[in-house]
Design a protein around this nucleic acid. Structure first.
Lengths: 244, 244
DNA sequence: GGAATTATTGTCAAGATGACGATAAGTATT
DNA sequence: AATACTTATCGTCATCTTGACAATAATTCC
């Protein structure tokens, strides 16, 4: 019976989740306030240690549910990148597998005072302001935002920020918030609705809003996550961000 | 002094490297023949355990050097994705951080009979043939090839498969091998040379080959890997593979 | 020297893009 | 109810990009 070599180094492994959403036309990230050392009192990405017999995705979902108090976390989860194990944590070597969640704006339960408090923070405020994140989480956040930006170009996952049904204007607001640019409503409308395999008209319309009612769309069937199946989540042609 | 919790689960962590190159107009992958259980005798990706105090990239480079007998492995190395820790290895939970190397066709030293033998294998043969890879390495290889394919669209890294200087035709052969399609030489030439920040004319020409001599190019300065700096490796406009 | 081979420059129609005008269909205001 | 306002949607047009393919250039091969 084959066994691992005795002298084998083993590492604690964590998952960290960069959960992004769009609130008030700005990109927001879910952060917790750390209640324990190290970095006690600092803002940090939600996450935690991977348990024995757990997969990476499972661990990410479990941690996210635990720290937000939300049972079924909505949105699209994917692996981002791994960092470490060296020089990330003053307690020693730790490998972390960062994940990216693109989610609609879901409410986070305010946990009691003894638990870690999770809340949405504008990404611009977090990165530019003086709210220094714990560990190497600022770097992870930067990588995650860049990944999200390019995901919007090449995949239909911008829709993951919206609910099940959304208007073209809502989708455009997502693109504008994530890319940090303004987009021409007419050209965006043409490209989004004209892209085969991206959107599907529900036939229904918004009611009660100001202005002309808008048609409600959902992700096209081929772009929707199927159970177990890997989504062929490719936008063709891509919706490129303006390059100046 | 903060310490890790006592009950913390620790995992062995490995790096696996999918080293790709183009040989005889076909995409090839570097594989070793395993000399130990489990999967003794099977083909597998090069890789091995991350040692204490080692970073992920360092470990990947060290393993690659050890298993190929090449001191300075050429090409572009980047992290691919992590897999695990559950259900990958009959010996128990192992997390692996897969890496992708895009390299020119470098010769692999044939190791002695007691060491693991590394060699290039055509990807098509490996995935379609009955050479079943060890562990979950077939899946990792599939992911790596897909990553390489899209890298060629959005980044100048196709040049990583060539040497320092290369002709447009050599670069095109890389694209054709990786994408598995034929490309029109004239249109490819126009797009490659017309892309700002991609190629730089060396002023020199090939000699001795059949046909008209070709101009030699190298990666443009802004696309070349600088020491320590992250390369702004983005191709604008992208060189999209034909979509049928 | 002529044939074969490969590189490179053009041409042209079709498709995609960015800027912006015009119209449609609601709500808010008077 | 009429008017103003707001937002959605459709259209136009010049420009850029793309794919298909003709033509020419500069070598080696025979």
């Amino acid at each position: 019976m084959a066994e691992f070599p005795q002298a084998l180094t083993r590492f604690p492994v964590t998952v960290d989740i960069v959960a992004l959403t769009v609130r008030d036309d700005a990109l927001n990230v879910l952060l917790i306030t750390r209640r324990i050392e190290p970095f006690r009192g600092r803002l940090a990405l939600p996450g935690g240690f991977v348990l024995a017999g757990e997969g990476l995705g499972e661990a990410a979902i479990r941690e996210l549910a635990e720290e937000t108090g939300v049972e079924q976390v909505p949105g699209h989860l994917e692996q981002l990148q791994s960092y470490g194990p060296r020089g990330r944590d003053p307690r020693g070597d730790v490998l972390t597998v960062a994940h990216l969640l693109l989610a609609p704006n879901f409410p986070v339960l305010s946990a009691g005072s003894d638990a870690e408090h999770a809340a949405w923070y504008p990404v611009g405020y977090v990165l530019d302001g003086d709210a220094e994140l714990a560990f190497d989480h600022a770097r992870i956040l930067v990588d995650a935002v860049e990944r999200a930006r390019s995901k919007l170009e090449y995949s239909p996952l911008g829709a993951a920020f919206c609910g099940d049904e959304f208007t073209i204007a809502q989708l455009r607001a997502v693109y504008e918030a994530v890319w940090g640019t303004r987009l021409d409503p007419r050209n965006f409308h043409r490209k989004a609705t004209g892209n085969p395999g991206f959107l599907e008209d529900t036939g229904r319309m918004t009611v009660g809003d100001a202005g002309r009612p808008a048609a409600l769309f959902r992700l096209a069937a081929e772009a929707r996550p199927a159970a177990g199946e890997p989504v062929r989540a490719v936008l063709n042609p891509p919706l490129m961000r303006p390059y100046s």
